[in-house]
Design a binder for these strands. Structure first.
Lengths: 243, 243
DNA sequence: TAACTATACTTCTATATAGAACTAAAGATG
DNA sequence: CATCTTTAGTTCTATATAGAAGTATAGTTA
């Protein structure tokens, strides 16, 4: 019977939603876990079943939870590390969209440039981890990535053996550092490739490239990763529905 | 007491939602109109108020309706003609994002090319309206558009005086042709500008440009407009949130 | 063993009811 | 006339209850 706190005069189902959100943020409920049933939650927090239901439905809409008829309610396992590739018409020769391989070129501690420090909310003098990756499909380089992580939250990432880092980084952040990437903002522009990038991607210098800046955040909006990806513009393709 | 039809064994609230959707599709309820209250709808269709509510909420989620506390439920007035410009960092010199002016260069009946005919579901030998527009901000050309409309649905558009066509086309389609654009799919790529496009946009020939193909559809998915827009890539900027 | 059955869980659908919160307009008051 | 009050409409919140429908497992039967 944990009474609902946050006692502003918000509707009860919203305060309940906030309480449940906190359970996930503070990792008492982890991705993949099953929550108590809606009846149990209602009893636990002292509200009617319908009210508990309304809170749960809202959190599903936010993408935090997932419900399955007859099975239960689960903490959603975020999964959009590879979603970068929705911007590109890259797929393997057999036509299947697979996760591309990746080759880590550099992984060091470093002082972040100003705009990265601001995005990641790193204090003056605070450290960061800097990484450079090349992603390949069928051995062909398609995207070059520059990645920055806040040192205080992600320090343990430096201890992971390179062999243990697969093409997907977010599961590693989750397991090693206890930080779950829940959402991200992305920003796309077109530029001319600098000589170094052109060499990495095997393009002519000055060829147009798509630059994607991404800021990944945790459940409570803490910035967890800043990433800049570059790929050949002639392979760029984005499809969306608007209403 | 219009009984719910579509008698598959779908849940009642979904069949009700479908019935209400039809009211909008068949223009008995027009954009801006207020619907009967949730109690009245429940009585009309012979369901409980909560069930009517559930149907209405779903249609709000789909973007078809809009509800206002204490005022009523309304058919949403779609409004994304200018949304093209979310892809570009174009705004007037005063910093305000305004709707750009537009200059119609051509408006004629013509036979559509194959891929357009397929997109618009135009039968062999079926006609189309072809239009070419240039859009400007502060007198500067920023986007060139090539537009195709299916003749059978949009014939009356040819009769509209050019002076009566503002920068926004969709309200004209709605008022003159009785066709409401409810949603659209867009597809973005990067290309090198052809000489003619470069001249229109005052770029060097071969400069990279963003090409946006859009297919606009009505409430019942009927294709209403095919549009290809071209703008300078160095002004391109797209921002999105993913989860 | 293999296939069916019963059972105990879960979420989902549907109903009914009561009052709060908000909006708009008609009516009363100064 | 201007301002406040009442009133009738709307959606929104919250509760309670009953049963349908889906899932997983333990138990039974052939």
């Amino acid at each position: 019977m944990s009474a609902l706190s946050g006692d502003t005069r918000l509707p009860r189902y919203q305060r309940l939603a906030e309480a449940l959100r906190q359970e996930v943020v503070e990792r008492r409920w982890k991705p993949g876990d099953r929550l108590p049933s809606e009846n149990d939650i209602a009893a636990l927090y002292g509200v009617a079943t319908g009210t508990a239901r309304q809170a749960l439905v809202q959190l599903v809409k936010e993408g935090l939870l997932k419900r399955e008829h007859g099975r239960g309610t689960f903490v959603r396992r975020p999964n959009f590390d590879q979603s970068l590739f929705r911007f590109f018409r890259f797929w393997a020769k057999d036509g299947v969209r697979s996760v591309p391989e990746s080759r880590i070129l550099r992984r060091v501690m470093a002082a972040p440039p100003g705009h990265v420090a601001r995005s990641l909310r790193i204090e003056d003098g605070g450290g960061a981890i800097n990484m450079s990756r090349l992603r390949l499909i069928d051995g062909e380089p398609v995207v070059a990535e520059e990645i920055w992580l806040p040192l205080d939250l992600m320090e343990k990432f430096l201890d992971v053996a390179e062999a243990d880092i697969g093409p997907l980084l977010y599961p590693v952040y989750d397991e090693v550092c206890g930080q779950t990437v829940a959402r991200a903002e992305e920003s796309l522009t077109v530029e001319s490739s600098a000589p170094e990038t052109a060499r990495l991607l095997r393009l002519e210098a000055g060829a147009p490239i798509i630059v994607i800046d991404r800021l990944a955040r945790g459940y409570d909006d803490t910035p967890l990763e800043w990433r800049r990806s570059r790929g050949a513009a002639d392979r760029f393709h984005y499809h969306t529905e608007i209403r």
